[in-house]
Design a protein around this nucleic acid. Structure first.
Lengths: 228, 228
DNA sequence: CGTGCCGTTGAGCGCTCTCAACGCACGTGG
DNA sequence: CCACGTGCGTTGAGAGCGCTCAACGGCACG
């Protein structure tokens, strides 16, 4: 059974939210609700809603007719999406782990909605620059630094705070996010590992060993406009 | 003298708007103003402004520290940008031809600003899909169809209406928009020409000869979500 | 103990990039 | 008038990065 088919079986699209259990999302009264790994959110059903991730990880993505996929955004705790503009048309969203989401009517939180759109535009522009103009190692280094910021394990008694994070994305997800193949992702990650830049024993728990060198690799940072 | 240096001399960035002639943009009283080919708009100067292109062509782009460039959006008549969120941080905008722009305070046109952001997000998502998951011929075909829609020569007495358009982008601009090199752009355009898909005698006037075949090439259209 | 997903690794190919040369249009100055 | 410089576009030759195809192992699950 293909991956896509399994998704269909887990939760028939696009009525995902309606077929879920008692954590069903009700557009009439904003509430928390929960998504399982791989579960799709049927966002086109409730265009007036703004969703805020309170826990977990959401991937925003598009599908091409022949099955090619492009993940356009990865959202973590605190990030917002939905809101008619952010997810519409061919855009879909799926949870990459156990995820909790808060839903608000856009009309109730216009400032939050505007801020979410601004953030989305900025992230999308930055992401486009990466997709169009960076090499595979640059993309991977860039992604690791981004994800370590967003999903750092905040254990107060751990000396590794900010260096270790849970990689909710599979190698295939990373590939579809960065515009690579999963083989290239795997090879580059293991090359980084061999070079001592990162460390992982489980494929989904990454520890950054040499942040400076990783930053140097991703360094093709967007050039700041110096005022005057 | 390099291209970048020439830009600097034409109009020192980022005070572009202040050094222009009597068509100077004054943030206090919204107005039309004009940009010459290659001229940069210093958008970070007036964050509260929304700009609407009434004539011409604007490229939104980002620069990397080593000079690599990624054009993230091409705007034609009717498209809006600016508005703090759309252009901020490392993002720049430059005119690709003689361009006329209307400026509004965002506060005065909140609906237009929201609509512009929604449109920007949609375009950016679609563009990301192209950058990450399409081949060079697919990108070029897709771009030609997009541009022909946006910049079609509307001559009522011409039988070619909708087939012929002015390509305001140079080969280098196209490359930086599509995540290719200018050589690949040139080769692909001339291959399309040899195959009879398009026609051009001047490099900047493109005529689409076989729209159907061009669409088939770009066909990896984003898959529609079929309701229920 | 099979089955399916995920990750890893290898071999080889090919699409796109890199480097290079050239033509053309245009403007400038001798 | 022509020589010269510059920007833009085209074309060729060769190299390399990332993709394609393939095999294999670990692990969860029934």
């Amino acid at each position: 059974m293909s991956y896509a088919q399994k998704q269909q079986n887990v939760l028939p699209h696009p009525a995902a939210l309606r077929t879920a259990d008692d954590t069903l999302f009700n557009p009439a009264k904003p509430a928390f609700y929960r998504l399982k790994p791989g579960e799709e959110a049927a966002l086109n059903e409730h265009p007036g809603q703004l969703y805020k991730v309170s826990e977990g990880c959401i991937a925003i993505y598009e599908l091409l007719a022949d099955g090619r996929r492009q993940i356009t955004d990865i959202l973590g705790p605190g990030d917002s999406f939905g809101c008619q503009a952010l997810v519409c048309g061919t855009t879909r969203a799926k949870s990459l782990t156990f995820t909790t989401i808060e839903a608000y009517p856009v009309a109730a939180v216009p400032a939050l909605a505007a801020e979410a759109m601004m953030a989305a535009v900025q992230r999308l522009r930055r992401h486009a620059t990466m997709l169009g103009r960076m090499t595979a190692p640059e993309k991977i280094a860039s992604a690791l630094l981004d994800l370590s910021r967003q999903f750092a394990r905040k254990t107060p008694h751990s000396p590794d705070t900010g260096k270790s994070f849970t990689l909710y994305l599979t190698r295939a997800d990373l590939a579809d996010w960065l515009g690579l193949t999963l083989e290239t992702v795997s090879r580059t990650l293991n090359q980084f590992k061999r070079e001592g830049l990162i460390e992982f024993t489980h494929p989904e728990i990454i520890t950054i060993r040499q942040k400076a060198r990783l930053k140097a690799l991703a360094f093709a940072e967007t050039q700041e406009i110096r005022a005057q």
